[in-house]
Write a protein that binds this DNA or RNA. Structure first.
Lengths: 321, 321
DNA sequence: TTGTAGGCGTTATCAC
DNA sequence: GTGATAACGCCTACAA
């Protein structure tokens, strides 16, 4: 069986208390005793039991992280940074892939509470999960409004939408169509669309928005069929932009001379696989940093964190505009 | 404060034991009592404390998962499936991004032991981490040999390498170069290279292999400079293949007529962003399933799981060959 | 059918 | 400096 503190104590010829003291560097310990204890620990290959410790100190150093799926490069990269930064601060990540399903999200939420996580970072796409209002548990949202009193961190979606649309207009486009995922009023990402519509109207152009669940090639085909005059597309993420490019090629539209595309996210993976794509790059690392900073402040009850944090985006001009 | 079993008991007017019985559906409980208890739980918004429970039953239903980074689409997708399947079996995932650094991997290993995980799934790229030999802790490796008595799950890397090389030969290529990440003898992925070399020799062709750390455009440039006669490349992953394609375009090599490329992995993301790329697709979902199946067998001490599991790969012919 | 007592491994408190 | 004791929240004998 796994050795426990009392086993170490026995071997070292001291009391459990003393072993605990050595472990946590607390109180006064004689140098010889410390040596003895440390040797006993090594000899038994002792590891402290954090479950027992957590039970006592009522803190787990666990953070629950709920996103749709690590398969998506944006979330994959975001979660990487979250885990990485959390680890450097002594926190560990309990990973939850909600797949955008409300019921899963709810059951993850229960699971996380049962596991006594110190806090939760949530960036799933569901609306209406009221369970986030957990009085005793700090929660921070990423790119998503969860509830009135939960802080949200996001990048500047409005400015991103504005820059993307403006770029296409500057390049002479007039029939710009926006295509995005399901429109959720609760998400700041919806601001991309609002910015697009505002900029279009400001330029006496008619905004047209298509919605697609995930990567729906059919919607894109339909878009082209219904709008033969379309000369450019602002896609709400790079995956959709890629699908648009594919369809454009099928229709023998020459990019960028004849047809332009700009995406959104600018993840590492997209930059590697599709470097020619123009895109609005989100500051993923900074989002992760800020999110954790706020969460840990809440955990430590250093309150007063701002309710909404907006980080700047960056336009990357590739060869598709 | 969070309510505990005794709080529920007080409200329901019963003893803590009875509440525990209702919670776990164990032993005989009167219907009225059960109702009372359930109502008390609802009223107090009670959640069982899994930390305390884990301490008692000596089981956490936690699985530690160590991979280089969720940013990489292959690992992102693999981890998604692992988490997903684990969740359906009542297990939770503690996520660790080792970034291919031995020291991080070692410290994650310590962390996981302290947290009393029931098992570990590891697929990082390090060699020489002897700490995996933990007598009391089940470990399963993915695409990687960890130690003599740790089961490994991987796809058929030899066959994948064979198919890729053979395809290029069938298409008339003669100057095929293989390019991959750092060559680690311990990893089954190295078999891709061996297969490439075997097939080349079987066809009286000279194998040439280049190594690159991550996505090193410089190595690829060098490869082209040193081998102007190269007519095709078998890349050990799709990211590298993409970089090769980029360089080929810069050098005005026409794909596929003048120059061919085949990659490896065939993740969802790659298929979306670079659908034209020919590749060897790994059965990621199946790898996850098999890995968890074996791990849970080990956890339940139903021993006798096979030490090496090899899953079939699938050739996807795109437009780059 | 329900209740009491003890322990899971750790740490804080208070003696010595 | 070091040790005994109680408690964290839960679960399983055993008793009633």
């Amino acid at each position: 069986m796994k050795p426990k503190i009392s086993d170490v104590a026995k071997v070292a010829g001291v009391s459990p208390t003393t072993v605990s003291r050595v472990l946590n560097n607390r109180g006064y310990i004689g140098e010889k005793t410390r040596k003895k204890v440390e040797e006993a620990m090594k000899q038994l290959n002792y590891f402290p039991n954090d479950v027992a410790r957590s039970l006592f100190i009522k803190k787990t150093f666990l953070i629950g992280v709920i996103f749709p799926t690590t398969t998506n490069p944006f979330y994959g990269q975001l979660i990487f940074h979250i885990e990485n930064i959390a680890a450097s601060l002594g926190y560990k990540i309990l990973l939850c892939n909600s797949q955008g399903q409300e019921d899963k999200e709810r059951s993850y939420l229960r699971m996380l509470q049962r596991n006594q996580v110190d806090g939760i970072i949530a960036g799933a796409h569901n609306r209406g999960v009221k369970e986030y209002d957990i009085p005793t548990l700090p929660v921070v949202g990423v790119d998503r409004y969860l509830s009135g009193n939960i802080p949200v961190v996001s990048s500047d979606n409005y400015d991103g939408g504005r820059q993307a649309t403006q770029l296409l207009i500057n390049k002479g486009c007039e029939n710009i169509i926006h295509i995005n995922g399901p429109i959720l009023l609760e998400t700041p990402a919806n601001l991309r669309r609002k910015a697009y519509e505002d900029v279009m109207r400001d330029n006496q152009l008619t905004p047209i928005t298509y919605e697609t669940e995930g990567n729906n090639q059919a919607v894109i085909k339909q878009l082209f069929d219904e709008n033969p005059q379309v000369d450019s597309i602002f896609a709400s993420d790079d995956l959709i932009a890629s699908a648009v490019m594919r369809e454009a090629k099928i229709r023998k539209r020459n990019i960028p001379s004849d047809f332009k595309v700009i995406g959104y996210d600018g993840t590492e993976t997209t930059r590697l696989l599709l470097p020619e794509l123009s895109t609005i790059q989100q500051p993923i690392r900074e989002i992760a940093e800020k999110t954790i900073e706020i969460l840990i402040k809440e955990i430590n009850e250093e309150g007063d964190s701002q309710m909404e944090t907006i980080l700047p985006v960056r336009l990357i001009e590739g060869e598709t505009t």
